[in-house]
Amino acid sequence: MALLSLVTNILLFGSLAIVVGVIAARWWVIPKNKVLLRTDAARIGTAGAGAWLIALVLVMTRQLLEFRDPFVPWTDDLSLLLGTSWGTSWKGAVAVGGVTLGAFIRARRGSRVAWGMATLSVLLSSVFPALTGHASGGDGARYTVPADVAHVLAMGSWVGTLAVVLLLDRARRRAGVAPAGVLDELIPRFSPLAMAGVAVLILSGTVGMWAHLDRPLALIETAYGRWLTLKLILVGGVLVLGAINFRRLLPRLDEEAGAVAMRRSASREVALALVVLAVTAILVRTPPG
């Protein structure tokens, strides 16, 4: 069960970060005249939306196993679970996820309306973790739920978009359309978005810490606090790599060696962010205290 929970949450948050990153890349990072890049982004979004739906199926499987009453049929347990507020949120997430997948498929043909639908449905999907996690519990839900949604969107806009940029760069190089890659076009447009994402991430994370920890020493005295401390350390590492990319490598993107160095450093940044994602997957299943 622990392994299923870990895999489920990693896939859930990872796919959500990717689709948020695709939307951010479409509207803020990819230049308006780069039609092929938008098409590639829609393909990435299609894969991300498909992974999101798979993650939701795994979420239901995990919840059903935990909810299971061995003395009644599975169908009865499923019916009861779907009738709860959690089940309502899950059904809504699946419906929105289906719209997201269809919208990204249509967006591959260049439909601006489809991109608009994908944007709206991704924004709605970002609410699901908050409604089914720690943020929705307690008297401070009116603060923690919006903060959690902002946290998800900020992480996706930062790390998710960076992953999408690297995937777009790889796709263009492999296709031979841009042998030198497209980092010199995308990274300068991505950097302001990343800085805004980091600012929102810090602010929303502070709200979450205030809501879920009753004292500073809880960071080391409780299981939740220790996992949160580890997450903060790892996020700090991602921030350091991002700062290196911005200060040292961004000015060198017009050089081949600079682009190669940026590609490697950004890949390490995303890899470390995946570790953060794994810790988050554990954190959301650990009771605050």
Rank of each mutant, 00 (worst) to 15 (best):
R142F: 14
E255H: 06
A218D: 09
V127E: 14
S191G: 14
A147P: 09
E185L: 05
R62L: 03
I18Q: 06
K32I: 11
R62H: 07
A259R: 13
S15K: 00
G156W: 00
L232E: 04
G205R: 07
S136G: 03
W210T: 11
G236K: 08
L274C: 07
M155C: 07
A55Q: 14
V72M: 04
D184A: 13
R106Y: 13
V113W: 15
V22R: 03
V72G: 05
L249K: 00
S126P: 07
A49G: 04
R268F: 15
I105C: 08
R68P: 01
N33L: 10
S5I: 07
W27I: 02
L230D: 14
L120G: 15
R106W: 13
G205N: 10
M262P: 13
V279G: 03
L277C: 00
R252M: 06
L64K: 04
R109L: 11
N245Y: 02
D76V: 13
D69Y: 08
A154M: 11
A24D: 10
A141G: 12
Y224R: 09
G50I: 05
G87C: 05
G45R: 01
L53N: 05
T280R: 07
L64E: 06
A180S: 12
L232P: 09
M262Y: 14
V113L: 11
V149I: 15
R248K: 09
L81P: 04
P31Y: 08
D148Q: 13
L253G: 04
V57R: 13
V276C: 04
P287E: 00
L56Y: 14
V57G: 08
V177K: 03
A273M: 04
R108A: 00
S126E: 13
V276I: 08
S265H: 03
P251Y: 04
R112L: 10
L131H: 14
V276Q: 06
G87N: 01
A257M: 07
H134V: 01
A266V: 06
G14T: 02
G50A: 12
A49R: 03
A196V: 15
R252F: 03
R108F: 00
H151R: 12
V270Y: 06
V57H: 12
M195T: 03
V35I: 11
I54K: 14
W115M: 09
T206M: 13
R247W: 01
R189T: 00
A55K: 10
L36C: 09
V284K: 11
S111F: 12
T119A: 12
F104N: 03
R68F: 13
F67A: 05
L253M: 06
G14P: 06
L168Q: 12
G236A: 10
S121P: 13
I30W: 12
A273T: 03
W74P: 09
L82S: 00
A147F: 13
I187K: 05
V164A: 08
G208R: 14
A266Y: 06
G176M: 02
T88A: 02
L228V: 06
P287Y: 03
F13A: 01
G205P: 14
S204Y: 04
S267I: 04
L153M: 06
K32L: 15
L101S: 04
T222C: 12
A2Y: 12
L78Q: 08
D148F: 15
G87L: 00
V276N: 10
A266L: 02
I220N: 09
A24R: 02
P287I: 00
R106V: 15
T144Q: 14
L4P: 02
P287W: 02
G92M: 00
L253F: 05
